[in-house]
Design a protein around this nucleic acid. Sequence first.
DNA 1: GATGAATGAGGATTCATTCAT
DNA 2: AATGAATGAATCCTCATTCAT
Lengths: 219, 219, 219, 219
Amino acid sequence: MPKKTFLNLPKPKQQQFLKVAFEEFALHEYHQASITRIVNKLGIAKGSIYQYFENKRDVYFYLLEVAGRMRAKAGEANGNQTPNDFFQFLAENFIKKIHFDLEHPSISGFLFNVMQEKNSDELGNIQLKTKMQTMDFVRQLMDRFKSSARIRKDVDEEMISYYIVQMQWGFYDYLELKYSFNFREKIKENSPIFDISDDEIEQVVMRFIQLLREGIKRN
Amino acid sequence: MPKKTFLNLPKPKQQQFLKVAFEEFALHEYHQASITRIVNKLGIAKGSIYQYFENKRDVYFYLLEVAGRMRAKAGEANGNQTPNDFFQFLAENFIKKIHFDLEHPSISGFLFNVMQEKNSDELGNIQLKTKMQTMDFVRQLMDRFKSSARIRKDVDEEMISYYIVQMQWGFYDYLELKYSFNFREKIKENSPIFDISDDEIEQVVMRFIQLLREGIKRN
Amino acid sequence: MPKKTFLNLPKPKQQQFLKVAFEEFALHEYHQASITRIVNKLGIAKGSIYQYFENKRDVYFYLLEVAGRMRAKAGEANGNQTPNDFFQFLAENFIKKIHFDLEHPSISGFLFNVMQEKNSDELGNIQLKTKMQTMDFVRQLMDRFKSSARIRKDVDEEMISYYIVQMQWGFYDYLELKYSFNFREKIKENSPIFDISDDEIEQVVMRFIQLLREGIKRN
Amino acid sequence: MPKKTFLNLPKPKQQQFLKVAFEEFALHEYHQASITRIVNKLGIAKGSIYQYFENKRDVYFYLLEVAGRMRAKAGEANGNQTPNDFFQFLAENFIKKIHFDLEHPSISGFLFNVMQEKNSDELGNIQLKTKMQTMDFVRQLMDRFKSSARIRKDVDEEMISYYIVQMQWGFYDYLELKYSFNFREKIKENSPIFDISDDEIEQVVMRFIQLLREGIKRN
DNA sequence: GATGAATGAGGATTCATTCAT
DNA sequence: AATGAATGAATCCTCATTCAT
């Protein structure tokens, strides 16, 4: 909920603001992120940011809204034919989001940070709230594929959707660990987050989805 | 690596210190946690804490060491008969840890925070280190049960152990969500984390382990 | 190297800042000098000083630059005719500097302290650097008067210039001792350093220069 | 003025105390010197030092008394024949002191620091007091050589004795500058202060004495 | 609408000294 | 006589926010 002043700004200025703010909040968690640094990078006056937003918290939530919307949209666009298998759909949706992340590292990094934010008096349990949004999306998906989804019914939907979301966010952690790189460093250096081929990404995703689908037991 | 001064303290004083420090670091991530607050809660002089420890960082790493050791030990004690099934073992180990977490919410909360700490100059990649320790534990477990574990071989051990660890830590999120309570509030109020029966916990864990084992697809 | 913020300040405010800061650093050596005390005397907020300067060190070096420039300039202005004798010139330059010191006791006191600052990681060997600057000035002077200076050649220039500088700074000690007053007290009370007439000062200086020139032996 | 407790200590313990304390105050000026560090190096309890001395200041003044006495004594011992020329005597006395300094770098370093101590509420103008003691010694010397000293009478004794003392203390500064070494570093490394031959020292001293005697003008 | 100087509570850390044992 | 834990005032520095221009 930015103030009118922000929305009246010429679009390029708004864009520039978002770019810099995303970067700052991708590089640092909420409390460590610095309004001063944002303002300096933008080359605007300290006071200006308080003409645009109520306070730091306000900026943060606005970023969250924008980022969430963008990433969700990126997952949607499904070309012509929609896969008619739930897991297939999930995989594709996931891969699309990963490509979005590659193209928008600081937005993705910001969201990653949100998912690690401790709940506090200032932000509330923002992490859980955000997770629940994604879970809603998953649940709608399960609904959409209904019977064809072939998802076990002996475990409740809530747990399953949570399980899927949790797996997805863990994915980046896993990559950091497996390919020994540092997410935030990459953003700082402005270098591509992964130097992993599309193929490899797809493979890793497919294996993750398989774990999700079939579990870790041997058949 | 506390100083001698701390170790010479009467045990109850040490305990009291740990209690308060764990609480602070459970409620706030490293940078937000306040030495001043700890000292005030303890009713000791600001200088005293620096007689016990080198600095904030030193306190943090000591807490990590203590907490890690305690939680690991809690998972060990296995009564008379050890289950001879990997998943059975995992479930029991997990339930034991959950009980530990219930009894020591602030220790558990602290460890949870460690798992979310960003890589920084001051702490290093402590999150990764800690996660890898837990993964190692899981891997040793898989080794121990060898063939009997019946774990798929088409996905590498690293991914599987990561998957298990990631899912286990997510479990608390899920509980918060399912039983609508706020972890952090509970720590503050020093009230028991769940009013969930042991039975119910066991049921949830078993379902969760099933997901892990068999995946989410219907058979 | 103050920040823009400081340079944008109205001149009187800048002057007031310099006055108070010089006083503090004249009364106390670097480590003992207190930013808090400066800020309190100025009646400004603690944070303000950090809007003006990077840190304590930054303040210190700025003061050094300003003080050095002012005192050097004070020694320059040479009326109409330049004396064509080296020692005459030295005497006049010295007297001018003494008058400057009388008029700016805290600036002079600050410089005096700089000349006593120990080599440290924080400041580097600032004492040596500053002394060498003054020695350079003396050396240029000797050059300028070349043969007419009639300075012994059996002792190297470096030693001679060092000797002059060392003796000049000792001069104040001597005055304190001879006229039994306390430099530091004077700065605190902001009262004129000496109640010595211009004539008397000139006499003492001339005797001093004679010692420098002819040594202490009887002819 | 140490307490009886200190004087009752076995001599070796007293010696050890002096050694460590001199080192600390040679390496750091009064305020920067740390009682804690002394106590740690000695391996005694924090409280003990306060059984021996009133406070830090008390330690400092005791060190000053001891060091002053030792160095003065070192300058005295004059072998069989006393030179009958004032300047000759001065030179020899000075050289003896320098040798003392070489053998007792931390005592000498401590005294050097005293001579740079700003006067403060805590210590008073200790620098000046100490200088005055040495001046007294010089004055007695001038008396002793009376007419044979051949010292100019048109400049008062006070200035002359001050001048001599000031020159002597400046000597170390000069060496530091000329031979580019760092006094305090040498003490820390426990390596010899100079790697300058006795001959070279004597030469430099003689040149300094000549400047003192004959001034810097060419004849 | 923009500016940017001013604010002040808060942070971690240091250290001479005290005092009960 | 020795101990060493406890003290607390003091240090520099940070940063979101305010407000007069």
